Every structure is written in structure tokens, then in C-alpha cells.
Amino acid sequence: MQSRRTRRLEIVGTAVAAVVALVVALNLVGVPVRPPFWPGGAQGSNPFDAAAVHVDPQSQAARAAASAAGDDARILGRLAATPTAVWLTPEATPVGVVEEHVRRIAVQARDEDSVALFVLYGIADRDCSGQESAGGLPPDQYRDWVQAAADGADGIGTSAVVVEPDALADAGECADPDERIALLEDAVTSFVDADVTTYLDAGHSGWVAPEEMAGRLEQAGVEDARGFSTNVSFYADDATERAYADAVADALGGGHYVIDTGRNGNGSDGQWCNPPGRALGRAPSVGDGRLDAHLWIKPPGESDGSCGGGPAAGTWWTERALELARAAGW
């Protein structure tokens, strides 16, 4: 019996062949058709090879830069110009809003030949271990919200998504881990079916052992995705995190990954919530081998939570942004 992945790849392959034939025919008769499309479908190649991540002109960093002055304005302006993921939460973009919100960003990215990078963050019992970002949607509402988000990107240029930071890493501490894994598998399916390059989050090097994480990723359908993400909202240095990601990939028998390097310039001291003495990390860039890219997934100026002297999780914190930037020599 064929696996679900094999059947999907056969369908994608047939569709890609048809699209290629159509593009060639249209160009031959003088109707220009511009890329992007990927041989093998959205999961088949690295979307960051040929394009940078889209810069959202309406980001919190951009708004902070517009209201700053002097050297603060210079630093915040540079921060705002650095390609960073756009987070989707049901609190900020509910089901009636999220589709159009995603579509707006996807269209902007398509028109400038960049990659629209999203982070999905609204699963039921969200942040069940840390509680700083507690919330999310009940399962049925979550599925509807996820589908609306995927629909917003469907058929529009080049998009990628990181699915639910920490959701697999803290699944063992949540009330219903089986339901959580089922929700993640459904989310992966929604975005894969919408031709959005999909990375399922795998926590970070200081949390779950690679073999255990690989097992959880497999349960959540990573075989249908492009791969996984690590270090989202954490501070582990590049070498430590890449070693962890490679170990996870080895346990999976292969796969690709992206690493969040937005705030790991000084590495980790073991703390995760607004630890002192940290710095901005490596700028977003394409990777090599199994590493698709170094990305800024967590916006560096957003708080981890009310611990460490910060405002609520996800709230823009100008003082923190400037501290991280100056520690990195900006």
C-alpha cells in the first residue's frame, strides 16, 4: 500500500508537470508568467535559496522606529529592516480576520519576490508548561482558524510557516498530549495542502532529547512537511543548536530544518524568559546541507513574558530591543 506521502508526491509531481507545460505554452505565445514555483512542490526544496524573507512594514519594530529619535531611531530602524517572521495568534487575528491578514502579507511578499514567513501560535492549551503565553483555541475552533490562515496563503507566491513553537516540546506536560499531536498533524496538512512550506517546531537543545523529539515529530506528521524548526524564542548558540537539529534529523532518518538566531548572539545561560546579558544573533541567511536557513522567528523586541522585568508575552519592549542590539555591537 502506498503511504500518504507517496500519494501526495505523485499528485504534486503531476500538478507541477502540468504547470510547467502551461507556463512554457503561455510564454511561447507571448503571455509572460513569472515565478515563483518549486519543482517537487512547496516541501520539495529550500524556499530561502533564492529569496529573502519579507519585511513587514507594519511590524511593531517599524512602529517603534517611527516614534524614536537619535541613536535609538537608528537602531530600531535597522531592526525593523531585518526580515522577521509574522506571528499569527487568534487573539490578534481571529478566524474572521486571519485569512485576509495572511493574504495581505503574502501578496506583498509575492510582489517583491520575497518569502512570506508566518508563525502559527494558537493551539489549545498553549504554553501549558510556561503559562506566560497561555491561551489558544478549543480544538474545533482551532482547526477552523488554522484552515483560514492556510487559505489566506494558498496560491499566492512563496510562503513558509513555523507550526506552533514549543507545542511538541511541552506536550508531555499538557492535559491531553494525544489531542495536541492530532491538532498539529491537522495543521501540517492544512498548510501542506495550501502549498506553504511547512516547518513543525521541535523545541530547542535544552529541552527534549533528540530521539524523543523525533518520535513526537513523526507522530505529528513531519514526514509530510519540509522539516522542523528549533531555538524559536530561545537563546542557544548556533553550534549547540545545529548539533541538536542534526541529531533530531539523524533520528528521523533525514530532513531539513531552520534555526531561530534572532537573540542567540551570546548563547544561553539556561534561562528562557527575558534573561539578562543576551544579544542579537546572526542575521537571517540561507543555510547549507540540511539547514535551510538561519531565521529571525521570534521578533527580538518582543517580551518573553512578565518574568525578568518584562511586559506580557509578545508585547513590544523597546528597552529590551535596544539592549539586545547594543550588546551585539549595533
Score class of each variant (00 low, 15 high):
Q141Y: 01
E173F: 13
L117I: 11
W145P: 06
D151G: 05
D154M: 03
R126Q: 14
G157Q: 13
G122P: 08
A187L: 00
A160L: 08
A187K: 00
P138E: 14
V196T: 06
S159P: 02
A153L: 04
V146C: 03
S114C: 10
R180C: 06
G135T: 13
L117W: 13
D144K: 10
G136C: 13
A106K: 03
Q131N: 12
R103L: 04
L183W: 04
V98R: 09
D113M: 04
D178N: 05
F191R: 01
L117D: 07
V107P: 01
H204V: 07
I156W: 02
V163H: 00
T197F: 05
E164P: 02
V115W: 12
D193N: 15
C174R: 09
A109Y: 01
D127E: 02
L120I: 09
Q131A: 11
D178W: 02
P139V: 12
T158N: 14
I181P: 07
E100G: 12
A134T: 11
A187H: 00
H101A: 15
A149Y: 00
D144Y: 06
S133I: 05
T198M: 11
I123G: 07
R110K: 14
A148P: 12
H101W: 15
D195I: 00
S205Y: 10
E99I: 06
A116Y: 02
E132H: 14
V196R: 07
V107H: 14
S205G: 09
P138T: 12
D111M: 13
Y142E: 09
R104D: 10
I105A: 08
G203I: 04
D113N: 14
Q141F: 02
V161Q: 05
W145I: 03
V102C: 06
E185A: 15
R103H: 13
V115R: 11
D127Y: 03
D140Y: 07
V163C: 01
S205P: 04
G206M: 03
T198N: 10
A202S: 12
P177A: 15
L184G: 03
Y121F: 15
W145L: 00
A171Q: 12
Q141S: 11
E164H: 07
G157C: 09
P138W: 10
S159C: 08
A150Y: 08
D195E: 03
G157R: 15
A171R: 11
G203C: 06
L120F: 09
A106N: 01
L117F: 15
E132F: 07
A124G: 11
S190I: 12
D166K: 00
H101Q: 15
